[in-house]
Amino acid sequence: MTRLRSVTAVALSILLALSIVAPVSAARVYNSFTNTWEEPSAVATRNKGGSPIRRETVDYSGNYRPGTIVIETSERRLYLVLEDGKALRYGVGVGRDGFRWAGTHRITRKAEWPGWTPPPAMRKRVPDLPAYMPGGPANPLGARALYIGSTLYRIHGTSEPWTIGQAVSSGCIRLTNDDVTDLYERVRVGATVVVKH
């Protein structure tokens, strides 16, 4: 009887420990590249090394005012125009086939660790998406978001650095969390955004 009580106590201790740990380990991360939910450990493994495209200052001959963001979707690059014929160049992920767009808008809002409300069309394509996701490391918008005009699109971070340089999104422009945080600090609300094919 004493042995049975000991085994029962150990079993209850294990169950209690699992119930405390389970909510943390059960949190899954949405991978928009594959349209699936993944374990955070899989994402952490792929996250090593940051962006495959290094951020750098380059010569830039475009006819844009300093502070303008120019996104060259065919190059998979974002240029923040600086003074004296220079630009800061970032690697980006862009819209996949059928989701590319072009136009000139302004940054209308900036947010740190933004929440995400997937648009109805996206929820129709991916039915298991939540109606809302609070901001945080598992959120597909990443560490920062710059909202583009009245569009549904944003320039935002991602915890999926392997997607930088790829056409993977539903139209948003994504940077690594490090790069989007850097861009966020440099860009003001009202800045012009030019998206080109």
Rank of each mutant, 00 (worst) to 15 (best):
residue 43 V to A: 12
residue 154 R to K: 12
residue 167 A to T: 07
residue 81 V to R: 08
residue 137 P to H: 01
residue 47 N to W: 04
residue 158 T to G: 07
residue 9 A to I: 06
residue 55 R to T: 15
residue 104 T to N: 10
residue 128 D to L: 06
residue 193 V to I: 12
residue 114 P to I: 11
residue 15 L to T: 08
residue 186 R to E: 00
residue 123 R to P: 12
residue 142 G to H: 06
residue 18 L to Y: 07
residue 87 A to T: 05
residue 64 Y to F: 14
residue 123 R to Y: 13
residue 126 V to L: 05
residue 180 V to T: 08
residue 166 Q to T: 10
residue 126 V to I: 15
residue 31 N to A: 05
residue 81 V to M: 02
residue 86 K to L: 09
residue 24 V to H: 15
residue 195 V to T: 09
residue 63 N to R: 04
residue 70 V to G: 05
residue 62 G to I: 08
residue 106 R to D: 05
residue 134 P to W: 01
residue 144 R to H: 04
residue 50 G to P: 14
residue 131 A to L: 11
residue 139 N to S: 15
residue 130 P to V: 09
residue 191 A to P: 01
residue 8 T to Q: 05
residue 61 S to T: 13
residue 135 G to K: 02
residue 10 V to Q: 02
residue 171 G to R: 06
residue 167 A to G: 06
residue 192 T to A: 03
residue 85 G to E: 00
residue 19 S to F: 13
residue 150 S to K: 14
residue 144 R to W: 05
residue 88 L to F: 01
residue 194 V to C: 00
residue 146 L to K: 06
residue 141 L to F: 05
residue 23 P to H: 11
residue 22 A to E: 04
residue 71 I to G: 03
residue 109 R to N: 07
residue 187 V to N: 05
residue 25 S to T: 13
residue 5 R to Q: 12
residue 38 E to S: 09
residue 4 L to Q: 15
residue 76 R to K: 15
residue 153 Y to G: 06
residue 163 T to H: 02
residue 47 N to S: 15
residue 38 E to H: 14
residue 175 L to N: 10
residue 176 T to I: 07
residue 184 Y to C: 02
residue 98 G to V: 10
residue 35 N to M: 12
residue 154 R to M: 13
residue 6 S to W: 14
residue 50 G to K: 10
residue 165 G to E: 03
residue 141 L to Q: 01
residue 48 K to T: 14
residue 153 Y to C: 13
residue 65 R to Q: 07
residue 142 G to C: 04
residue 184 Y to E: 03
residue 150 S to L: 09
residue 103 G to L: 08
residue 71 I to E: 01
residue 98 G to P: 10
residue 158 T to C: 11
residue 187 V to D: 09
residue 80 L to C: 12
residue 33 F to K: 10
residue 189 V to A: 03
residue 152 L to W: 06
residue 80 L to D: 10
residue 148 I to T: 10
residue 1 M to N: 08
residue 166 Q to L: 13
residue 33 F to T: 13
residue 147 Y to H: 14
residue 52 P to A: 13
residue 47 N to A: 15
residue 163 T to K: 02
residue 81 V to S: 00
residue 81 V to E: 01
residue 197 H to Q: 13
residue 41 S to D: 12
residue 53 I to F: 07
residue 115 G to M: 04
residue 126 V to A: 06
residue 43 V to Q: 14
residue 19 S to G: 08
residue 69 I to M: 09
residue 55 R to G: 01
residue 178 D to A: 15
residue 33 F to G: 06
residue 66 P to L: 00
residue 152 L to V: 12
residue 6 S to V: 14
residue 9 A to F: 08
residue 8 T to R: 14
residue 124 K to A: 15
residue 100 R to W: 03
residue 10 V to H: 04
residue 10 V to E: 01
residue 84 D to G: 00
residue 82 L to P: 02
residue 182 D to A: 11
residue 17 A to L: 15
residue 112 E to C: 00
residue 92 V to K: 13
residue 105 H to R: 13
